[in-house]
Every structure is written in C-alpha cells, then in structure tokens.
C-alpha cells in the first residue's frame, strides 16, 4: 500500500502511522456528557468500504492527512491535508 502525500508524493505506508477513523469529533470541554465521551472514545462505525481516516507522515513531512481508503481492497481514493479537512468542517467552506 502506498499513500500519495500531497506534499511528498507517493510513499510506502511504512512511513506513515495511523490514528483511525476521522469521523468522530471530540465533545466540547468540561460540559461534555459522559455518554457522548464514551461514544467518541470507544464506538466506531468500522465500515467495510470507503473509510475516511487519519494518517501521520512521521517519516516524511510530518503532516496529518485524511485518507479515503476502501477497507476491503486498500485502494486509496483521496488524500487531503487534515488541516484543510478540519477547516472545511469548521466553516462549512471548501478548502
């Protein structure tokens, strides 16, 4: 499996480390309910198919990336800087 880093080009997946599903968002601050925190920390969709997930290019440019990958085939559809994805999520605008 190779991941096409937007900054470094196509690199072996051994250069990257994996965090997991990019979908969960951390409940806000001390006001967060225990149940919401439980869902965020422990529960996963764990889909078979297209999966948006966070990877870190630790042996390269050290950027956080959001990779869209098919978990059944490991085929990668899209790689975007996590910064852009977060900005889009926050503002609702395209990066």
């Amino acid at each position: 499996m190779r991941i096409r880093c937007p900054y470094c080009g196509e690199r072996d997946n051994g250069e990257f480390s994996y965090l997991g599903d990019a979908a969960p968002t951390r409940p806000d601050g001390m006001g967060a309910e225990a149940a919401a925190m439980h869902d965020y920390v422990y529960l996963r969709e764990n889909r078979a198919g297209a999966h948006r997930e966070l990877w870190y290019h630790g042996s390269g440019c050290r950027a956080w990336l959001v990779v869209t990958r098919d978990t059944r085939t490991h085929a990668i559809d899209d790689v975007s800087p996590a910064r852009d994805v977060a900005r889009t999520r926050r503002t609702g605008e395209a990066a």
Partner: peptide
C-alpha cells in the same frame, strides 16, 4: 498491520 481492514491480506511494512 495497524489500520482498519477487511481485506484478509496485509502489507510489506
């Protein structure tokens, strides 16, 4: 391998 997968095959790393 350390990433979500249903593929029943892994990678070289």
């Amino acid at each position: 391998d350390g990433y979500n997968s249903y593929a029943q095959r892994g990678n070289l790393a």
